[in-house]
Amino acid sequence: MNDVVKYNEGSDPTNRPVIDFLFEEFQQALPTATFKVWHGAPVFFLEDIPVVGYQDHKHGVKVLFWSGKDFSEPGLLGIGKHRAAGITYTEVDAINVEDLRRYLRLSSEIIWDYRQLRSQN
């Protein structure tokens, strides 16, 4: 069984519907992506570069877009010192699917290669 499926199955039952929904949306929007549990959470990669992931938390499911600050989307909050931004979902009905699909499309178009950034420092 895939490690992401195990992660999803072991998630908080309150968050499980959101996690299942996100997993399906991510797979549909990023059909060429690979995915695995990376640093403790499911992450989707395009050409070995992380683009989006989610994490089960006490107060919802946090979604991280590695290049999200460059999407110029008001619904995403900047995270950390690099280009990441995210959003937290607490229930499936609260997910604006149109926005989510746009974020996922942007995550496949705007990709910061953090490997390159590390090698330049």
Rank of each mutant, 00 (worst) to 15 (best):
P31Q: 02
I95C: 01
D48P: 04
Q27N: 04
L100K: 04
T88F: 02
F26R: 00
P17Y: 00
L106V: 00
P31S: 10
Q55I: 03
N121S: 13
K69H: 03
E47R: 12
D48Y: 08
P74A: 05
I87C: 14
G78V: 03
A84V: 05
K58H: 04
V52L: 09
R83L: 01
V51A: 15
L76R: 04
G78K: 13
P17T: 12
L30F: 14
V97D: 04
Y103I: 02
R105Q: 13
E47K: 10
T34A: 04
F23Q: 15
L64A: 05
S72Y: 08
G60Q: 00
V51G: 09
V52W: 06
R115M: 06
R118V: 13
T88V: 14
H57Y: 05
Y103W: 15
H82D: 05
F44T: 06
I79E: 15
H82Q: 08
G78R: 11
F71I: 09
P31Y: 06
S72I: 01
S72E: 11
D70C: 13
D48E: 08
E25D: 11
T32H: 11
G53I: 06
L46N: 07
F35K: 15
G60T: 07
G68L: 08
S107E: 11
S119G: 05
V61E: 14
L76H: 08
L100Y: 03
S108N: 15
I95T: 10
V63F: 10
N96Y: 05
